[in-house]
Design a protein around this nucleic acid. Structure first.
Lengths: 196, 196
DNA sequence: TTAATTTCTTAACTTAAGTCAAGGATTTTA
DNA sequence: TAAAATCCTTGACTTAAGTTAAGAAATTAA
């Protein structure tokens, strides 16, 4: 079982301090609640049907959210790049089975905190509750952007929006995942790209 | 200038206590920060281009979120029914000009709290910070549902999802607003409804 | 480094939604 | 309550995306 490196600690510290200022005591309280984990590429950090009982922190790498529709089609709903906290918020908040799978896109060293420890931290420290509020606000904003791309734009324009808003997606993510993120088939995305 | 009635106080109390338990002192602290306002039907509670500086509480009635695209087409992005807190979260959180307009759909008596007072309450009371976190989580969940309807379903299925998930929409909301909420034209919605 | 798998593209055809236009029904408001 | 505005539907036509199928290219893993 590998240790939490100084580099990983620093990444967590920097990220948390974007939202709240932590003195040593508070940061050590937070850090003390996290455990280390090493994922394989393509490993599921959360499986659809199970209740989310952890929040992950990614100091590196990125993950994909996806689910399988009744007709068997796989839908990619989101990507998160490091650094950041990752979980199925809906499953975690409601403590109900998750709709989505969360999949590691690359092999990576990550941290996680258990749900019950997070809740205890919320009770214990006003500042951590604030961190929770600010993070919830951020995931809302990012979800709303994705939603607005559907309300405002045709598939072709959604693709243009995507490369404008998230240029790193194009470099790192297989196109058929991007297609379903955009709500279109891989064939359509291929045609859209070749009619510029 | 009309007063805040006992009925409105009760509505706020009941709603807040779904999320946090408030003793008299805490509830009076919250209530003391709200002011009364009476809207006309179709009045804009927030105009696109202005920074959101209030959060509204609706004890009754409902509102519509909409914006105008560059091509002049109006898009309805959301509806909120009473009871609940209403604002452009994105504009409020980032303190940037709002994309959306918020429009009263009926004449109603409402409350509002100013942004700076809300921030002060967050600092002052851990429990209110928690309320903020829980509300942010709820708006995320509701935005994600709307998003998933686009990722999972064709327009026809999205309409069926809407009447299943939000039957009250059909009874209260003009169809051309629902059409743009579903990302389709009024003509298409009309055809979808007439091919059951 | 080769075999297996995954990823991406192209083509032919189908279908559902968009566009443009018009008119009737309903609701609002003066 | 009558005029105005809004709301909803229908029809004819266009267009963009879906479907099915096949194969080439690239990547992964044995």
């Amino acid at each position: 079982m590998k240790e939490i490196t100084a580099e990983i600690k620093k990444s967590l510290h920097t990220f948390v301090n974007r939202f709240i200022k932590t003195d040593d005591e508070l940061f050590n309280t937070i850090l003390g609640n996290f455990e280390y984990y090493n994922t394989a590429r393509k490993e599921l950090l959360l499986e659809a049907g199970k209740v989310a009982d952890k929040v992950f922190f990614l100091p590196e790498g990125f993950v994909r959210f996806f689910h399988i529709k009744e007709n068997g089609i796989e839908v990619t709903s989101d990507f998160y790049f490091a650094p950041g906290f990752i979980t199925s918020f809906t499953s975690l908040i409601e403590q109900k089975p998750s709709i989505v799978n969360i999949q590691a896109m690359v092999k990576m060293d990550i941290l996680f905190i258990k749900y019950k420890n997070l809740i205890a931290l919320y009770d214990q420290e006003h500042k951590i509750e604030r961190l929770g509020r600010l993070l919830a606000e951020q995931v809302f904003i990012s979800s709303e952007k994705h939603l607005f791309s559907f309300l405002n734009d045709l598939p072709q324009e959604r693709y243009e929006w995507l490369i404008r808003e998230y240029p790193e997606y194009i470099k790192n993510i297989p196109l058929h995942y991007l297609a379903s993120y955009l709500g279109i088939t891989p064939e359509s995305l291929s045609r859209i790209r070749n009619r510029t």
